[in-house]
Deep mutational scan, measured.
Amino acid sequence: SRHTFEINGERWTVEGVSEELKEILRAAERASNDEAERLLRLALKLI
């Protein structure tokens, strides 16, 4: 499935992501810059 999210003013669209990964991306959208970066690094390990 496709998911579009915005982090630090940048929009991203990813396809074929699991519900778990979507949850991480949604958390990154709400997080501070440092926390968002940490969550994105974690998410990339899952891809």
Rank of each mutant, 00 (worst) to 15 (best):
L40Y: 10
R2P: 09
R26H: 13
E20M: 09
L42I: 10
E10M: 14
N33C: 12
A31W: 03
L46Y: 10
K22I: 15
F5M: 02
W12I: 13
L39C: 04
D34F: 10
L46E: 04
K22W: 14
G9E: 02
E10H: 11
D34M: 11
W12Q: 01
V17K: 03
E35D: 08
G9A: 03
A31L: 07
E35Q: 06
E20A: 11
E10S: 08
A28F: 07
N33P: 15
I47L: 14
K22A: 13
R2W: 13
R41C: 12
R30A: 12
E23M: 13
E37G: 08
S18L: 04
S32Q: 11
L25T: 00
E15N: 07
R30Q: 12
L42T: 04
A31T: 05
V17F: 07
S1F: 09
E37W: 13
S32N: 10
G16H: 13
R2Y: 14
E6V: 15
E29R: 04
E37P: 02
L42D: 03
A27Q: 13
A27E: 09
G9H: 02
L40E: 00
I24Y: 05
R38L: 08
A28R: 02
L21F: 06
E15P: 05
E37T: 12
E15W: 15
K22S: 08
L40G: 01
I47P: 01
E20Y: 13
N33A: 15
E29F: 05
N8W: 06
S18P: 07
L39S: 00
L44N: 02
R41A: 11
K22D: 06
E15F: 13
L46H: 06
E10N: 08
R41S: 10
R30L: 14
L21H: 04
R30S: 11
E29C: 04
S1V: 13
G9F: 03
T13L: 09
L46S: 04
V17W: 07
T13G: 02
I7K: 01
T4Q: 08
L46V: 07
R41T: 11
S32C: 08
D34G: 14
R30F: 11
L40R: 04
R41Y: 10
L25A: 01
I47A: 07
L25S: 00
T13Q: 06
E10W: 09
R41E: 07
N8H: 05
E19M: 07
E6I: 15
K22M: 15
E23L: 13
R38T: 07
